[in-house]
Nucleic acid binder design. Structure first.
Length: 958
RNA sequence: GCGCUUGUGGUGGAAUUGGUAGACACGCCAGACUUAGGAUCUGGUGCCGCGAGGCGUGUAGGUUCGAGUCCUAUCAGGCGUACCA
């Protein structure tokens, strides 16, 4: 019987739909397992063979867990909001909803052909109002929350001291009683430090109160420096900017101050850091997140300004180098610049600020020049009273620490470069450190010059003779005891900017009254995205939503009203920005648990059952974007009691990217003649990409090539051995490289099971690897052999005979290997195990049910279609998905011999086999019997015999 | 610059974690069956050498009876990040 994969796969894919094989429900009797893939953005290009890699890997795991008796949730959906659909809409006028819908249909069709065990009844789309209802809802909750340890005014009995999100009402209650007095000891997250009394608070009007509260809300409207991309007409988050240009499109990005919605992610910095210790992610990914969060311990110190009442604060991790400070530096954007610039320097400073302003992010990265200007003012070193000039330079960032630093050129390379350029003094503070050519940045050595000879410091303070570590501690203690500053932890992690000046995204459920944002009542959610005529910003520069005709909030009727009546009714303008891409993808895993619930994001029952994601599979490119936002979002929902686990993704596997393998032809310059790879060096040639689909085994199909492009119809070729051999290179898989391989084609030619097997066989899941269709025959051949094991001519030939020991050994070797390999995600070595077992059993002519039936179950996660068909042929009426994973039994694998290494005179000489259950005497006899091997006769003085495994026996021979 | 990571045949990649390196597959070679083959089957295939044999896991050392695996130094590639004080 021939292996007719086309019929088999079609039959079972239809049957799975008809029988709802993969639909799951909460089942308290069974243990849950939640497998999740990062959901795709449905781009217009469709899937290429790289996309399904992670889906196949997780599908195998999901099917395996199910066969082990777990109730497995394995959902799929679409991250449907995004820039490409909108850019396409701007160019063509085609509504993004329509293109998105079409792209999703295409994706679904492609996915269905590969035979995944997704429960499609739980599909979510981020652009669906039923879905973004809960994105908007979460945003409103963030608006209504602040972050702190419990405040005494609302602390519940027995409440733990943990910092978390709390209702803003609790903060208001505190203000009513204390104002801001004593607030700092509760670790309240805030944009800036405010100070007012309880009575001042009570005297504020509503707008003023709202302005104050904005300083504490987790979702807040803030005036911040943003990454503005003029080409895209929108702001971008830090992770959306790569090398100073936009991730999408590669357009320049500049810094601009704008009023934007922000999420106070920074409040969660410590918890995001701590949480990493509890989850099973790769160390490198955790490290990437740790760097992104960027915790650094240091001190804030106050510096007075000479001849002035003014003072300012700096942040440093090297308080111990205070005696080496020779200048101060302010960030150009810092408020202090205005205050500290002297009239004499005003012109120079203005000129410098103008220069900085016109520099783009990209300029700053590409030419890292040393630039700066003297402010005219001097600061006073609080330890020595010495005067220090205050400079302004772009190498100090406004957004980190206090936007001002103390510069220690001897021990900081950036300060060093600055000091050299502007000829400022450099004072070495470490014994033996040579600072004539570069700074000494390491935190080691013995401190000197602190203070320098002849200088006295406040209270006779001295660090001389201490190690750097001791000096850091001593300085911090001194700073604290003399009230010169305070110990401070800073994070690099910034708040996320949450507004986008785009159309195709979640609308904010917000309207404006007296210039202050108000939340649309919860019962009126979702606030649906309106239709617009144009997708570009309006003429007046408002975001595209300004083009919507009916887009204002009518508080009387709780509905979106027509703008034209805005003056006659109590109608308020709505927020015109939309939410960024990560809004919809931050909590989608929770929604899969209960996707049709219109009362809650997720019901307590469903949330309580599924808890969190046990296995998350996706690309590592989301390390500092989605995977941070999502963890933040989940922690917030955890604080609300909506999410059950503080960490959303327990184990995470990064699938490696599948790269393209491009082929090249070589055209002789200024001709239409192409020369084969081996001969190209004899000519002056231009390499040109050629479609990999008309190349097989690097040999060009010349007729197909002539048909490929009209200009090649008359091409001539210089062949080697009658063939045209192409060159190749590993590149990104993309249309422009003509190296895209479409999974549909592979499925059509070889079948879904072959594709699944081959993708896993290609190499470790985590590793990046190039796609090469050539090897696929091997996987396909294996499936044919596997199929043939069950047949004799055209008859199904499985018997009920008793298996032999050798057959059982082959089976149990396979069970062991496959189970271990799935557990450790080593699918690429599990598949050879199937090949070996198949060869062994074919040679043994084994067609026994007791052996073959368990093997069908073993292969079911990898090649579900063929497994279903054989399972049915074996006489089962239920799906192979409901079978039981075979148990491995050690007794079938016991080896009868063990290898022994014999070593003497300091060298391993030879190895022999001996019975596995042999005692030492038998082993010694075996060794002695080899003593007379003529080859070794000259080495009479045997020193020892080493046995593997794990036994060493010394035998003296002569 | 910093952090992470990987170096094994012509290619993708194995190696029970210190025990006869190169499993499995592609490719290549030979043979069989074919009118034909980008079909199927069988055998071979790390390198050098006719051979005995020698050499081989980026490079150089070290530990060990024994090293792809452990240690030290060094080189090369990939990914991430970027003036974070």
């Amino acid at each position: 019987m021939e292996y007719n994969f086309r019929d088999i796969e079609k039959k079972w894919q239809q049957r799975w739909v008809a029988m709802q094989t993969y639909k799951v429900t909460e089942d308290k009797e069974r243990r849950k397992f939640y497998v999740l893939n990062m959901f795709p953005y449905p781009s217009g290009a469709g899937l290429h063979v790289g996309h399904p890699l992670g889906y196949i890997a997780s599908d195998i795991y999901a099917r395996y867990k199910r066969l082990q008796g777990f109730n497995v949730l394995n959902p799929m959906g679409y991250d449907a909001y995004g820039l490409p659909a909108e850019q396409y809409a701007i160019q063509t006028g085609q509504h993004p909803a329509i293109t998105t819908e079409a792209n999703i249909a295409r994706y679904r069709e492609q996915l269905d052909k590969i035979g995944f065990s997704f429960d499609w009844s739980r599909e979510v789309r981020t652009c669906d109002p039923q879905y973004y209802h809960w994105t908007q809802w979460a945003f409103q909750k963030m608006f209504g929350s602040f972050f702190s340890s419990p405040l005494p005014t609302s602390r519940k009995k027995g409440e733990e001291d943990c910092p978390k999100a709390r209702p803003v009402e609790e903060l208001v209650a505190y203000f009513e009683e204390h104002g801001t007095e004593g607030l700092e000891e509760f670790g309240v997250a805030q944009s800036e430090e405010l100070s007012f009394t309880a009575s001042e608070w009570k005297a504020y009007d509503e707008v003023q109160k709202q302005q104050v509260l904005m300083n504490y809300r987790i979702a807040y409207l803030g005036e911040t420096m943003v990454n503005w991309c003029p080409e895209l007409g929108t702001v971008l988050a830090n992770d959306e900017v790569v090398d100073g240009v936009s991730e999408r499109g590669g357009f320049p990005v500049v810094q601009k101050k704008m009023k934007q919605w922000c999420l106070r992610v920074s409040a969660y910095a410590q918890r995001l850091l701590d949480g990493l210790e509890t989850i099973d992610w790769t160390e490198s990914l955790k490290e990437t997140q740790r760097n992104w969060i960027g915790r650094s311990e240091g001190a804030e110190m106050e510096f007075k300004v000479k001849d002035s009442e003014k003072s300012f604060t700096i942040f440093t991790t090297r308080a111990d180098t205070i005696f080496g400070v020779t200048f101060m530096v302010l960030a150009p954007e810092s408020e202090l610049v205005k205050e500290l610039t002297t009239p004499g320097q005003q012109a120079a400073v203005d000129e410098y600020l103008a220069y900085v302003k016109k520099r783009t992010e990209r300029d700053r990265i590409s030419d890292r020049k040393v630039t700066g200007v003297f402010s005219g003012s001097h600061a006073i070193n609080p330890f020595t009273g010495q005067e220090i000039p205050i400079w302004i330079s772009e190498y100090v960032l406004a957004g980190y620490g206090t936007g001002a630093i103390m510069a220690v050129p001897a021990h900081d390379s950036r300060d060093y470069a600055f000091a050299r350029h502007f000829n400022l003094p450099i004072i070495p503070l470490i014994e033996g450190a040579d600072v004539s050519h570069e700074s000494f940045d390491a935190k080691e050595g013995t401190v000197m010059n602190s203070p320098a000879d002849g200088t006295t410091a406040l209270d006779g303070f001295s660090l001389n003779g201490l190690t750097v570590k001791e000096a850091i501690t001593a300085t911090k203690a001194f700073v604290a005891s003399h009230n010169l500053g305070r110990v401070k932890v800073n994070f690099r992690l910034r708040d996320a900017i949450f507004s986008r000046q785009r159309y195709w995204g979640e609308p904010f459920p917000v309207y404006y009254k007296d210039g202050m944002p108000q939340m649309i009542p919860e019962e009126c959610l979702p606030l649906e995205l309106p239709d617009v005529d144009k997708f570009l910003p309006t003429e007046t520069g408002e975001p595209p939503l300004g083009n919507a005709r009916r887009w204002a909030w009518d508080t009387a009727s709780c509905s979106v009203a027509d703008c034209s009546t805005i003056d006659n009714k109590t109608v308020f303008p709505l927020e015109l920005n939309t939410m960024p891409g990560f809004a919809g993808s931050s909590a989608y895993y929770l929604r899969y648990m209960d996707p049709h619930n219109d009362q809650a994001l997720v019901s307590p029952e469903a949330g309580g059952y599924w808890q969190n994601v046990d296995l998350y599979v996706g690309g590592s490119e989301h390390a500092t974007g989605h995977l941070i936002y999502s963890r933040f979002w989940n922690k917030f929902l955890f604080d609300l009691g909506v999410s059950r686990k503080e960490e959303p993704f327990q184990k995470l596997v990064n699938q490696g990217m599948i790269q393209g393998r491009s082929n090249f032809v070589y055209r002789i310059k200024d001709t239409n003649t192409f020369v084969s790879l081996g001969l190209k060096d004899q000519y002056d040639v231009t390499p040109l990409h050629v479609d990999v689909n008309i190349v097989s085994g690097d040999v060009l199909d010349i007729e197909a090539f002539k048909d490929w492009r009209p200009e090649y119809a008359t091409a001539e070729f210089i062949l080697e051995e009658g063939k045209y051999v192409c060159g190749w290179a590993v590149e990104k898989m993309s249309k422009s490289m003509f190296n895209v391989v479409n999974p549909d084609m592979i499925v059509e030619k070889f079948g879904a099971d072959t594709l699944r097997l081959y993708e896993m066989f290609l190499g470790p899941v985590e590793q990046a690897k190039p796609w090469d269709t050539n090897g696929i025959d091997g996987s396909h051949r294996f499936l044919k052999k596997f199929w043939n094991m069950f047949w004799q001519k055209d008859a199904f030939a499985v018997t009920d005979d008793e298996p032999t020991a050798a057959e059982m050994k082959a089976l149990h070797k396979l069970i062991k290997k496959v189970t271990e390999d799935i557990e450790s995600f080593s699918y690429n070595t599990a598949i050879p195990a199937f090949m070996i077992a198949t060869n062994e059993l074919t040679q043994l002519k084994c067609q026994k049910r007791a052996v073959l039936e368990p093997i069908v179950v073993l292969i079911a996660p990898f090649a579900p279609h063929i497994a279903e068909e054989l399972w049915q042929q074996l006489g089962h009426e239920t799906s192979v998905c409901d079978a039981q994973w075979p148990a491995f039994e050690e007794k079938y694998l016991v080896e009868d011999t063990v290898k022994m290494m014999v070593a003497f005179n300091g060298k391993t000489r030879f190895s022999i086999d001996f019975p596995a259950d042999a005692d030492n005497a038998t082993i010694e006899a075996a060794a002695r019997s080899h003593e007379l091997t003529p080859k070794y006769l000259e080495d009479k003085s045997i020193v020892k015999v080493i046995i593997v495994p794990k036994r060493m026996i010394n035998i003296v021979m002569k």
